[in-house]
Amino acid sequence: MSDPKKHSIAVKNLTVGYKDKIVAENINFSMGEGQLCAIVGVNGIGKSTLLRTLGKLQPKLSGEITINGKALELHSSFELAKTLSFVLTEQPASKNLTVQELIALGRQPYTNWIGTLTSQDKQQVEESLSSFLLTELRHNKCHELSDGQLQRVLIARAMAQDTPLILLDEPTTHLDLYHKVQILKLLQQLAHSKQKTIIFTTHEIDLAIQLCDKILILDDNENPWGTPSELIEQKHFEQLFPSEMVQFDAKTASFKVNK
């Protein structure tokens, strides 16, 4: 692997799991700024466990995770709040807040001890509202929103936190196809226009192939990582699911059901 200091995040020989239970091992990848990456794989393979480990929500079992050339475990909580933001599948406890209030919580790492928003903080909140098409919903309570709208608010809060690295666990769960595409295109735009490093877990492999710069496939073996076209060429998607039921069509870069 090349010099990790040139990467926003670098992972080497990583093993994740719980105490003495290994969930996934032999994970290696590195990502620079301005890239969108999906973590894909079958259910129970360890996608969320890996993401939570990258975000220091749970300890790694072995291996290395470096962010901006510094080992993850050496980052203080305060440093991490300015380095990475996390969007989990669990619903926020603060659904009684308005859209604008919830997004403004993303500015907490930067506000003074009484939490006063500066003009820069307010500008960041405005930009997040606008980028995620939420300006007209700013005064709505979060409990009044649809699943798709709430998901946009949670990602907008992460954008307002303005961290170089954003991790999202299943950001398109419970959404229809239009809103799945909308969320992933917004993430792609955020990565490319704001030079963010964005990593998310997903079951939407067809969409990830079309929209991501890089993909990590957890397959309980090699855990290949690369551009979608590289992974297609190396036939890694064809080995994801039992072939008697589902087959990957390399020409259309999509899965087909065997009838």
Rank of each mutant, 00 (worst) to 15 (best):
D162E: 02
F86K: 05
G69T: 03
D147E: 10
T98N: 03
T83Q: 13
E79S: 09
I155K: 00
F86W: 15
Q124R: 15
N96S: 12
Q100E: 15
V125T: 10
T98K: 07
P92T: 01
R138P: 04
Q151P: 00
R152E: 05
Q149T: 07
L145I: 02
A104K: 04
I103D: 09
L74G: 04
G148T: 00
N96M: 07
G106V: 04
E144M: 06
K82N: 10
S128W: 09
L84M: 15
E126F: 05
Q100Y: 13
A71S: 14
G148M: 02
E101C: 05
G148V: 05
Q149H: 05
F78G: 09
T163P: 00
S131H: 13
C142A: 10
K70C: 02
F86A: 02
L117V: 12
N96L: 07
A81E: 08
F132T: 06
H75C: 05
T118F: 09
I103P: 11
Q124W: 11
E126Q: 15
S94M: 13
T89W: 02
L80K: 11
V87C: 06
V125Y: 02
L97E: 06
E144C: 03
K70E: 06
R107M: 04
F86E: 04
G148S: 03
N96Y: 09
H143S: 09
L84I: 13
L154G: 01
P109E: 06
S85Q: 04
N96P: 00
C142W: 01
Q108D: 10
T135Q: 14
L129Q: 07
Q91F: 05
Q120M: 11
E136R: 11
T163S: 08
I155H: 04
I155L: 06
Y110K: 12
Q120D: 13
F78L: 11
S131V: 04
L72M: 10
Q124E: 12
S130Q: 14
D121Y: 12
C142H: 03
H75W: 15
F132N: 08
G69V: 05
K82A: 06
M159F: 11
T135K: 15
E127V: 09
W113L: 14
N140M: 14
S131Q: 12
N140R: 15
S94V: 09
L129I: 09
H139R: 12
V99I: 10
N96H: 12
D121I: 10
N140G: 03
F132L: 14
L117E: 14
I103S: 06
T163Y: 07
K95F: 04
E144F: 02
P109Y: 08
